[in-house]
Design a protein around this nucleic acid. Sequence first.
DNA 1: ACCGAGAATGTAAACGGTTACATCGGCAAT
DNA 2: ATTGCCGATGTAACCGTTTACATTCTCGGT
Lengths: 343, 343
Amino acid sequence: MSATIKEVAREAEVSVATVSRVFNDKGPVRSETRRRILEVAERLRYTPHGAARSLITNETHTVSVLLPDLHGEFFSEVMRGIDSTAHGSGYHLLVASSHNDRAEIKALLRAMRGRVDGLIVMSPDIDAHTLEANLPETLPILLLNCLVDGTSFDSINVDNHGGALAMVRHLAGLGHRRIALVKGAAENYDARERLRGYRDAVASLGLDAAPELEIDGDFSEEAGYRAGRHIVAMGGRPTAVFATNDAMAIGCLYALREAGIRVPEDVALAGFDDIPIARYMTPPLTSVSVSIAKLGARAMERLLSSVKARNAHQRRHETLPTELVVRGSCGGAVQRSDGSWNL
Amino acid sequence: MSATIKEVAREAEVSVATVSRVFNDKGPVRSETRRRILEVAERLRYTPHGAARSLITNETHTVSVLLPDLHGEFFSEVMRGIDSTAHGSGYHLLVASSHNDRAEIKALLRAMRGRVDGLIVMSPDIDAHTLEANLPETLPILLLNCLVDGTSFDSINVDNHGGALAMVRHLAGLGHRRIALVKGAAENYDARERLRGYRDAVASLGLDAAPELEIDGDFSEEAGYRAGRHIVAMGGRPTAVFATNDAMAIGCLYALREAGIRVPEDVALAGFDDIPIARYMTPPLTSVSVSIAKLGARAMERLLSSVKARNAHQRRHETLPTELVVRGSCGGAVQRSDGSWNL
DNA sequence: ACCGAGAATGTAAACGGTTACATCGGCAAT
DNA sequence: ATTGCCGATGTAACCGTTTACATTCTCGGT
């Protein structure tokens, strides 16, 4: 058992109030008294009890991140961004991954009461109603990459549609007319938006449009690999493949090379997200950059400001721009004689 | 503000004790009363307050993971393993990354009191003494991949030394005599052990040993890339490169290819960790597999059992075996005529 | 010597639960 | 009718803090 404030008070021959004042730098305390209290506290290894403190102050200095999954570098990057600003503001981080089970999500959300000061939700398939029904109304919430159907929650989204559009335009600009898309899971909001961007681009540019050009996937390397194998075997093989995230692009790249298909000479390849590892692929992966860590950092920044505003602030929806990052995998960039790429 | 147990009690015309009994399934409650209470609770959206509960029960159902950094797929995998068993046992996860600042670590550790039931420490450069001095003695702790200088803490380590030894042996078996090593940071315990394994293997097999064969690194792709550039420029270029983690191997691979050096034909390459993406490199990366997610899962499993035992259990040190995973990047495996690799 | 104003400190009521113990009925056995 | 027991419920103490308010000290000004 750790020492309590009472034990410190007794040992230092003061009241608990004075000890509390010392530890919170509140109210006047004679410097000699302060010294004595700190000394006793050190000797007794006293540390304030988090739960007790938050019970009365009604703040936990903790925020929770609810995410669907923990696979891959996308999540680790976004967590890194989130952590860095949380950490910088003295907040702790509770992570909760919700394997998409209805009842489980509900239980998770409820368990948050009295544990956190705010919540970042990254589950693309959780609906606003579930949130409202299972969380205290005063809890600040920020939806990250979630569908916002005009709800009253704050949100940040990546410009998935615009990014996908730009990528397809770029590929078309390189002369490709028959561009395959490797899709994400149908329920996933990001995936749907990227698909929409692809379709809009295909339609507006008059590119080949065919159902078989839209290949199923789920954002995993494995799915990308399967899609790659599928493409290898296709009649009327596309000349370019746009995988809607980098993990799938990497799996796909592997499948293509395994089959002896050269990238980008035989087939151009592009991804989405620009995860850190993308630039180290051979060829380096052309992608849509979303500054993942910055996305997380920005989300936490906004959440903390709602926390400070006691959730009584203007709700806002924010869309982060994307940037096309052209590297070797889609051609257009060429390898110099010294082996380096002109990017 | 959320409803409290008192409000539920008043509304349901019972005492708080009865409401508590219903929510904890403890003690007898007439089923009609239970129904009424649950109904009121639902109507008032009552959820027990975490901090209040843990104040009296003295358990938080939360464990904390302290790690040095959040870069790359290694951490995301280990977190995934940790989360999955924590989640399965109804525990929440607090992550804390400690950017190696002394005072900061101390503050972090202290802040844990009253917030968590146990702690997984993954900071290879935190010493046991700091832990003991800043944490309640009764808090269960598990050191993951940390130096355990015969301390009284539970621990799990990967067999870094054995893995590195096996890898160098394998490369030597393929005929390589001049094998470069890309090191991790000097303070990092994993890195040191892998280096030791390399040196022992080099010595016992009578391979070329030279200071310039040990190249600095820090477990990042970027460092691997720099090491690769360095190797490209070296006189007396090694015929094999053993990067002590996969991220560096990937960076190194890129540098080699960029310079027109073929892998594995001109230089063999191997990594360590076997992160999920390793198999999707071209060529697929030979590595030392450590079942990262399982490592995390096992750690959490053991921590939870100490929590249940109230920390009054036998301390144990455990070393997880590694497994050599031979893929294309170090030769030895060859590409079949259909393009696939014989692994 | 006395007064009044701060400064320094103490007292006790919260915060929202859990739980040991007390109370109260009702019913079967005597 | 009395007893004893047990199921259902209530009462109140407690967990470790913070903080409004009360109290006591200290001192300079008169």
